[in-house]
Simulated scan of single mutants.
Amino acid sequence: MAKASGKSFLGRFGVHIAVLFFVVLWTIPTLGILVSSLRDKDQIIASGWWNSFAGSVQTENGRLPPASAQQEKDGKFVIEGNLFEQPGAREIRAFGTRAVAPTEFEAGTVAELKDGATLQINADGSFVLASPTAFEGERGQRVYFAASAPARFTTENYEAVLFSEGIGRSFINSLTVTIPATVIPIMIAAFAAYALAWMRFPGRALIIATIIGLLVVPLQMALIPLLQLYNGVALFFGVPSKTYLGIWLAHTGFGLPFAIYLLRSYMAGLPRELMESARIDGASDFEIFVKIVLPLSFPVLASFAIFQFLWVWNDLLVAMVFLGSGADQLVLTGKLNALLGSRGGDWEILTTSAFVTIIVPLIVFFSLQRYFVRGLLAGSVKGG
C-alpha cells in the first residue's frame, strides 16, 4: 500500500538495492587494484587478488646439489638436502623432473628415475636422491615443484613506482596542472554567474544562449584552433608555448561554459528577498556577491570543483598538446600510458601506478561528496 509520500515500501527498497548494487560494482575493482598493488609480484602472477589472503600455489624449478655432494649409505649413493633456505616456511604439494609434468608426483612419494635412481621430495622441502651407482657430472638433477606460499604484502611496489619509475615527478606535474586549472575557472565563473543571474545589462540573454551553445562543442573540434591561437600569441610575445600557463588557460576555457551554466542556475534560485534587503542596506553588487552569494553557493562550487578536478586529473589529450610529453612535463596519465607499453607484463607496477592515479580523486570526492548532490539539484526547479 502506498504511503502519503507517494513512495511504497517496495519502491524504496528497490532503490536501496539498486544503489547498493552500483556501489558494490564500483568498489570491487578499486579494492582489487589496492590489494594487488600491495602484493608480492610473484603472487600476482600466480593467483587473483581475491585469493591473496589465503596464500597461493606457485610452480618453481631448481637444481639439486651436484655429484660432489653424494654420500654412500647402505650400498647406495645418496644426495640429501632441502630445497628451501628456511625449511618449513613453505609447503610442497607436488613435484616432477620434467617441464611438461612439473606436478607429476605428490609430495612424499618416491619417484622412479632412470637407471634405478629414486627421488623423494617431502612437503617440508627435504629431498633424498638415491642411486645404486655413483652420480656423475657437475650439474645436479633439475626438479620442478608446486609450493604453497603464505600471503605476502609489501610496500616495495610503491617505493619502486614513486622513486624508480618516475611516477613521483608525474604526480607533482598532475597536481601542478590540476589545482590551478580547477581554481581559476571557479573564480571566473562565479563572477560571471552572479552577473548573469542578478544583474541586468544589454546582451545578457545572448551571452546566456552562447554559453549554453558552447556546452555541446566537442573538445576535439576546438582543440586545434585554440592551440594555433595560443601558439600565435606565444610567438608574438616571444615566450615558450609548452608551459603550465598554457594548459591552465586551456582547461579554463573548456571548463567555463559548464561552470557558468551550473553556477548561474544555482545563484538564480537564491531568495530574491536577500538581495533586495542587502541593496536597501546600501550593499553594492560586489559586497552582495562576496558576503551573501558566495557563502550560500558553496555546495555548487564544491560540485563543480569535483567535476573539474576529476576531468583535468584524468586528462591526457590536452596535457600532451599544451604541456608536452617530455620526462619533466609528463602528467600522471601520460606516465601510466607509457608504463602500459614498456612494463605491460609487470602487473605489480601497473596496479600500483593505477592506484596512485585514483587515490587523489577519491580523496577529493569523499571530502566534498556531502555537497555534491545538493549542489547539483539546488536551483534545478526555480530559475532566474
Rank of each mutant, 00 (worst) to 15 (best):
R93Q: 15
E72R: 11
Q86K: 15
E91H: 15
A69H: 07
E138C: 05
D124S: 12
T103G: 02
A69M: 06
G137H: 08
Y158V: 02
E104N: 09
A149E: 06
T103C: 12
A101T: 05
A107W: 12
F135R: 08
E112Y: 09
G116D: 07
A130S: 15
A147M: 03
F127N: 01
F135M: 04
G116F: 06
K114N: 10
E156F: 06
T103L: 00
G125W: 12
G96D: 05
N82T: 07
F135K: 01
E91P: 11
L129A: 00
S126F: 05
A134F: 04
A117K: 15
E85P: 00
N157W: 05
A123K: 15
T155C: 10
K76D: 05
A94D: 11
G81D: 02
R90S: 11
P132Q: 04
G116S: 06
K76Y: 04
A94I: 03
G108Y: 14
V128L: 12
P102T: 04
S148A: 10
D124G: 12
P132Y: 09
A111W: 10
K73I: 04
A67I: 01
F105P: 07
N61I: 02
L113E: 03
G116E: 05
T103H: 03
N82Q: 09
E136L: 08
G125E: 13
A67C: 02
F77W: 15
L129I: 08
F95W: 01
P65Q: 01
A111P: 11
T118E: 13
F135N: 03
P66M: 03
T154Q: 12
V128D: 07
A107Y: 07
